[in-house]
């Protein structure tokens, strides 16, 4: 016997015919009651997971790419291979990368898989920006540091890295926003983050309120993160403010 829906079933059959769920049943664009009822159980946890996913990915990506950039800064031959590999990773569409990682041993449908993919998208941006920032430190400045008796290490930590800071933070900014964006797709793999309510709303007969609210939260989160990093950039590099448009 095959099971056939008699009629398009109403979006989760909200409490039969009660007037309380009239908005949900009509699938209006925005049902405030639905939002307030599901904020603490669906939306807020999704937002928190999304922030966690992003912070972990950006932190790991930052450590990895800074190490790579510092190595390539001293050993020029490293630059090209790292760029090629990270560029290929960056080019692979997110949907494909998540699926390609899934069958690998130890990954599967888990947060680890999501994080591995998200980290791999940050590498090219962070590596390139950090390296470019370091390379653009004027030679005279480096010579001056040397002339003051600084060792390579001191010059790097006290002179070159601070001067490269605007480029490094610009990279962090792009990487963070990129991860926030891709983490919505990661929900396909680990069923968390703001992509999860979006996907469930789609499979739930296109429940509009959830689509708009979860989608809107993802957009707002990215815009806010971008804004915060701009502020951080101004804080950390006050000397660059004069140049800013």
């Amino acid at each position: 016997m095959t099971f056939v829906f008699a009629a398009a079933p109403v979006i989760p059959n909200f409490g039969g015919g009660s007037a309380r769920f009239a908005c949900e049943r009509a699938n209006r664009l925005l049902c405030p009651n639905w939002v307030s009822r599901n904020w603490s159980t669906v939306l807020w946890p999704a937002l928190r997971q999304h922030v966690e996913l992003t912070l972990i990915a950006v932190a790991i990506g930052f450590v990895l790419s800074t190490a790579l950039a510092l190595s390539a800064y001293r050993r020029h031959w490293l630059e090209r291979p790292v760029l090629i590999v990270t560029a290929i990773l960056y080019t692979i569409p997110s949907l494909a990368l998540f699926e390609l990682l899934e069958p690998l041993p130890g990954l599967g449908l888990s947060r680890t898989t999501a994080e591995v993919a998200l980290v791999s998208y940050t590498l090219l941006i962070l590596f390139r920006n950090t390296l470019t920032g370091l390379r653009e430190v004027p030679a005279e400045v480096r010579d001056a540091a040397r002339g003051m008796g600084m060792s390579d290490r001191q010059s790097l930590l006290r002179v070159e890295l601070p001067l490269a800071m605007p480029a490094i933070i610009a990279g962090l900014r792009i990487a963070t926003v990129t991860v926030i964006s891709l983490a919505t797709v990661a929900s396909l793999i680990d069923n968390e983050g703001l992509g999860a309510p979006i996907l469930s709303a789609i499979s739930n007969e296109v429940f509009k309120t959830e689509l708009i609210v979860a989608g809107g939260m993802a957009v707002l989160l990215a815009l806010m993160a971008d804004g915060l990093l701009v502020l951080l950039q101004r804080r950390l590099t006050p000397w660059a403010r004069v140049r800013a448009v």
Partner: peptide
């Protein structure tokens, strides 16, 4: 850059 494609 801040627009998540899935959200859009």
């Amino acid at each position: 850059r801040a627009l998540p494609s899935l959200a859009v």
